[in-house]
């Protein structure tokens, strides 16, 4: 059942991010709820369900943003992978650490976008790091504890929490 509902959740997250959140901030800044979901999936979800969900969210973001298919999938799956590695060493539970870790992941994502543009499309967009990606990272970091609570509630309903290795 949880697997069947993954595409629905992915679709809802992308639609919510592209409409409600964008309208709230008057299209001035991007609140990347989908990235917070990638971090959440890495920290709290089962690898198969989390990975599947993040691939779907990445694909939908590629479709909506207009980037080459695989661009956001790679960014989100990488974030998911890093979060999963971190979760095996540290248990991130406090709101401050959740926000801090998500902000760092968002900053690295911004840096990766700049590097992709530089080496693949040969376009310099490094000024966007200060005007767009760092403010976006701070914002998503501040809001991520709230997003984590929402994802947690959905996770309990859909039973997608991480299983113990024992």
């Amino acid at each position: 059942m949880a697997y069947i509902l993954l595409p629905v959740v992915a679709l809802l997250v992308v639609i919510f991010q592209m409409t409600i959140l964008n309208v709230v901030v008057l299209y001035k800044i991007n609140i990347e709820m989908s990235l917070a979901l990638a971090v959440y999936a890495g920290l709290r979800m089962d690898a198969l369900k989390g990975g599947g969900l993040i691939m779907l969210v990445g694909y939908l973001m590629d479709c909506m943003v207009g980037s080459a298919t695989g661009f956001f999938i790679f960014l989100y799956v990488s974030t998911f992978f890093v979060s999963m590695l971190v979760s095996s060493r540290i248990y991130i539970d406090k709101a401050f650490f959740v926000g801090f870790f998500t902000a760092i992941c968002a900053s690295i994502e911004g840096l990766m976008i700049i590097l992709f543009y530089r080496f693949i499309y040969e376009i310099d967009i490094y000024t966007n790091l200060w005007t767009a990606y760092i403010p976006q990272a701070l914002l998503v970091g501040i809001l991520s504890p709230l997003f984590f609570k929402v994802f947690g509630k959905i996770g309990v309903l859909l039973k997608w929490q991480k299983q113990s290795a024992n």
């Binding site: 691939m55 695989g70 998911f80």
Partner: peptide, 11 residues
């Protein structure tokens, strides 16, 4: 998943 996404993106 990372390998799949990289292959899709490169393609």
């Amino acid at each position: 998943l990372i390998v799949i996404s990289l292959v899709v993106f490169s393609f």
